[in-house]
């Protein structure tokens, strides 16, 4: 048996490689599952904040102010305990079964709400970067509201919003680590389990940080390629 530190990372019964890989998978899955919520939610929030409908505008602005201002960790706790209590109350009306929401779901909802709030800022700025003449021209061509949005606004929006959204993806990737606090077996949680068993905190947390670092670097590379791809029409 390999007793060295690197041996602790091996796959199989003697190392923690499998556990860390399983945790990494959950971290990536959580980030990938949350990103669309932030994307779509942020876009809808931005539209609501720009709308003429007072109730819609005020509530969307309030939502963003709250979730941008609160620490992500308290948002997570409030969603986790709040939803659990609400669900327990609801189920308690019919039976005395014990229910609890999953940490993965709570993470998706909480981080989704936070990402959507920040994404709405990005979309607001991007939307104001699209000249009014574009809407007028689309109207002159007889395009309806939906067609204007889909064929004229969104294609230009992607390029304007991409840098901001890329940053949000990097933030989201890091924020998934918070969900380990409510016992989701993500990368950081699995690392803590390994630390508990091996008493090698420095080594294992350094490995975890290294893995997060690589994920960030890979994301940054992909994002800069995407930015080049969507900006190619504007290169002079």
């Amino acid at each position: 048996m390999d007793d060295s530190l690197l041996g602790l990372l091996s796959f199989g019964p003697n190392g923690w490689g499998d556990q860390l890989a399983a945790g990494l998978k959950i971290t990536i899955l959580l980030a990938l599952a949350t990103a669309p919520i932030g994307l779509v939610g942020g876009f809808l929030l931005a539209l609501a904040r720009r709308s003429d409908h007072t109730v819609l505008r005020v509530s969307a602005t309030g939502f963003t102010t709250v979730f941008k201002g609160l620490p992500e960790l308290i948002t997570l706790f409030m969603v986790y305990y709040g939803f659990s209590m609400a669900l327990a109350w609801f189920v308690g009306l019919f039976s005395d079964a014990y229910v609890e929401i999953s940490a993965f779901f709570a993470g998706m909802v909480a981080l989704g709400a936070v990402s959507a709030s920040f994404a709405s800022e990005v979309f607001m700025a991007a939307l104001s970067g699209i000249a009014r003449g574009q809407y007028e021209a689309a109207g002159a061509l007889g395009l309806g509201r939906w067609a204007t949005l889909r064929k004229v606004v969104i294609p230009q929006l992607v390029r304007l919003a991409l840098p901001g959204l890329g940053n949000l993806w990097l933030v989201l990737l890091k924020d998934t680590a918070l969900v380990s606090v409510i016992a989701l077996p993500d990368l950081l949680r699995q690392t803590s389990v390994a630390v508990g068993a091996t008493k090698e905190p420095f080594f294992f947390y350094l490995v975890a940080i290294g893995i997060y670092f690589v994920m960030s670097l890979v994301s940054m590379t992909i994002l800069s390629l995407l930015e080049k791809r969507y900006g190619r029409a504007y290169v002079r």
């Binding site: 918070l178 380990s180 606090v181 947390y205």
Partner: peptide, 10 residues
């Protein structure tokens, strides 16, 4: 590029 929580644990 890495989570503050992981840095804190380290």
């Amino acid at each position: 590029g890495t989570p503050l929580l992981a840095q804190l644990f380290l």
